[in-house]
């Protein structure tokens, strides 16, 4: 229960309390006033100035579909089931291409869709990818007007074109 302490104070207590109140408030105001000249501002003027994100930052996913071997490890590791993969066997006698780190691509990837509205950006899918084609890029400005446009088809040519910007050699 709240107990309000009421008692009549002596002259010394009254003026002492008054002085305490004024002094502690002034001490606090001095601390704040120092910020006018003594502390450098920490705000950056976004969007003219953009912060450089650290290397490990987990922003929008990018899948390099040309290097994907359709192992579906990412779809199984995803805790929210936002990766949809479909692949089929290569037709007889076709050339077996290799990924950038030497693995053979034995399946033809027909669907690689990630629903970025469901994605929780945990990074579990990137850790299990054997060819490291699924990575986190540093894009964070990708808000959209409709929920359906948040489904990214990584086989579409406009998304494949991001390769040049995101995948480093």
């Amino acid at each position: 229960m709240n107990t309000q302490v009421h008692h009549t104070s002596s002259v010394k207590e009254y003026f002492g309390g008054l002085w305490d109140g004024i002094y502690s408030s002034l001490k606090g105001m001095w601390i704040t006033f120092r910020y006018v000249w003594a502390v450098a501002p920490v705000s950056i003027e976004y969007p003219e100035v953009r912060e450089v994100l650290p290397e490990r930052a987990r922003m929008r996913l990018f899948n390099d579909a040309l290097n994907c071997i359709s192992c579906t490890q990412c779809a199984m590791a995803c805790p929210v089931d936002c990766i949809y993969i479909a692949s089929e066997k290569l037709p007889e006698g076709s050339e077996i291409k290799k990924t950038s780190n030497g693995q053979a691509i034995r399946l033809h990837l027909t669907q690689f869709t990630i629903d970025t509205a469901l994605c929780c950006y945990c990074g579990l899918c990137t850790t299990v990818c054997p060819t490291e084609c699924l990575t986190h890029s540093h894009d964070y400005e990708f808000s959209a007007y409709t929920i359906d446009s948040m489904k990214y088809d990584y086989l579409a040519p406009d998304i494949v074109a991001w390769r040049d910007r995101i995948v480093k050699a």
Binding site: Y84, A86, Q111, T113, D115, I147, D148, K151
Partner: peptide, 15 residues
């Protein structure tokens, strides 16, 4: 239905 992503899950079946 529009949030269940059934079309994506059944892509290979439709193909």
């Amino acid at each position: 239905d529009n949030k269940m992503n059934m079309e994506d899950r059944e892509f290979i079946v439709r193909q």
